[in-house]
């Protein structure tokens, strides 16, 4: 995907520059952009190292596991169809907590395990012919899990703060509150949508 996107930017841009007489500007722009990327990384080195360091402290102290344990009521509400004590619960909880903290690398492996467990759960349902979806189709829980995941759960957008610092923002962290509010809106819409679809889904079968 990115291969085409990047090729399009470069090729279409250069082609467009020729009739517009902007070739010289493009030449300058290319060299400028490359240098700028490096200076951006220097700023990010500071902010990101600080943050990954802090999060490592939390991770080693068992913060993810501790918080994941607190997620039970949320999971019962979002996924009433997953039996209590099913391993999917744990993986989903870890994935969500890691996303909330902005630990992308911890979120994805747990998320993939959760999908695997959800696939297993649906397989069991098929065997017991308890209104399950056909194979190769997403189960209700998978849809809910992914929609909520994609609605974004991150509390502190550290990368964005680093970028804003680099470009001379007067208060780089000013967007944290609004970003949490916007994330709350998108997640609320996601939860509402999943609820509605689940109801429709159940009555349709």
């Amino acid at each position: 995907m990115l291969n085409y996107l990047w090729a399009f930017m470069i090729l279409a841009g250069i082609l467009w520059a020729v009739p517009g007489g902007n070739v010289a500007a493009v030449a300058q722009g290319v060299l400028g952009a490359a240098g700028e990327a490096v200076s951006l990384c220097v700023t990010m080195l500071g902010v990101i190292s600080l943050w990954t360091g802090i999060l490592k402290v939390g991770e080693k102290a068992g913060l993810i596991d501790w918080l994941a344990g607190k997620m039970t009521p949320v999971l019962r509400f979002l996924f009433p169809g997953i039996p209590e004590g099913h391993p999917a619960n744990r993986f989903i909880a870890v994935n969500m907590i890691a996303n909330i903290l902005g630990l992308g690398w911890a979120a994805t492996p747990a998320g993939l395990k959760a999908m695997e467990e959800l696939a297993g759960l649906e397989e069991e349902r098929r065997e017991q012919s308890k209104n399950a979806v056909p194979p190769a189709a997403a189960s209700r829980e998978m849809c809910t899990f992914l929609i909520i995941n994609i609605s974004s759960l991150q509390l502190i957008p550290v990368n964005m703060i680093a970028y804003r610092t680099q470009y001379g923002s007067r208060s780089p962290a000013a967007i944290v509150g609004p970003a949490i509010a916007a994330t709350a809106v998108s997640t609320a819409v996601a939860v509402l949508f999943c609820r509605l679809m689940e109801r429709k889904d159940r009555s349709g079968r």
Binding site: M9, G20, N22, A25, G29, A33
Partner: peptide, 10 residues
Amino acid sequence: MTGVGVLRTS
């Protein structure tokens, strides 16, 4: 950033 640079300067 080079890609975006080309897109914009062109």
